[in-house]
Amino acid sequence: MAIKRSLGEKIFDVFNVFVLTIVCLLVLIPVIHVIAGSFSSTQALIRNQVFLLPVDFNLDNYKLVVQNRTFWNTFKNSVLLVVVGTAVNMVMTLLTAYPLSKSYLRGRKFFILAFVFTMIFHAPLIPTYILIRNLGLLDTFWALVIPPAIGMFNLMLCITFFRSLPEELFEAARVDGMSEYRILWQIAVPISMPIIVTLLLFYSVNHWNSYFNALIYITDRKLYPLQLYLYHLLAEANAIDNYRGVTTVNLDTSPQGLQLATIVVATVPIVVVYPFLQKHFIKGAMLGSLKE
């Protein structure tokens, strides 16, 4: 019986490695295909010759991206959004989480409930839109920064983390005459690096990746973030996909190579940061699993 079991286990182990390898391939093939296509010639793309390796390797598509002024403008807007938006997120989240983490703060329960309530009862989209409009934020950069200034889930993570810090440390600083602002900035922040890195990453990836807010609040093309530009680029590609066979004449100017290169460039910042900070992201996801 012992031999039989170990045989079954061996079969299972092989099967398991096999299944997970397939899963990895399913994740990687679309990504590699797009990268390969971005380095291929337009002709090769039209003839469907590209699979996982570039055909007629060249950088023409990237030259098109680099020369594309719309691309650079939206790229610049997105970088600015990530920098300013994340800075506002961090200041607002830390300032709010610190007092709310003090168990002796009067009214703490009420305040926290007021924040948590908005997580389970969402304000509908339209009244929010009307508010932004009435505030004169429509079609401004700030419409993308101020409405999402505090992520409620991130705020809860931060409060939970601050609560785990020893209060004696802060008491000692108060006795030494430090103000609460200096305590937050010079004592709480330096010892809270794990949560701060996690929040920085959650917020910045979110700013970099979202297009729907911009779709709602921004109509001025000069203010488009990169993702909204990509949205229009790809929606257009999808719309003409139906008719491409009919209009063979225009095939040489097919922008598919340009689309692929733009996708790759838009993903580069994420892929560069990813391996570096993977462990922090995972810590953040686990923090979330412990308690909201």
Partner: peptide, 26 residues
């Protein structure tokens, strides 16, 4: 490392990947 990666792609980019798999022409 491989399976966590797609979480960090935006939906526009995921649509780009999907399009390259499912597009009727290419």
């Amino acid at each position: 490392t491989i399976v966590y990666l797609p979480h960090f792609f935006s939906w526009t980019i995921v649509f780009g990947f999907t399009y390259m798999i499912l597009s009727v022409q290419t």
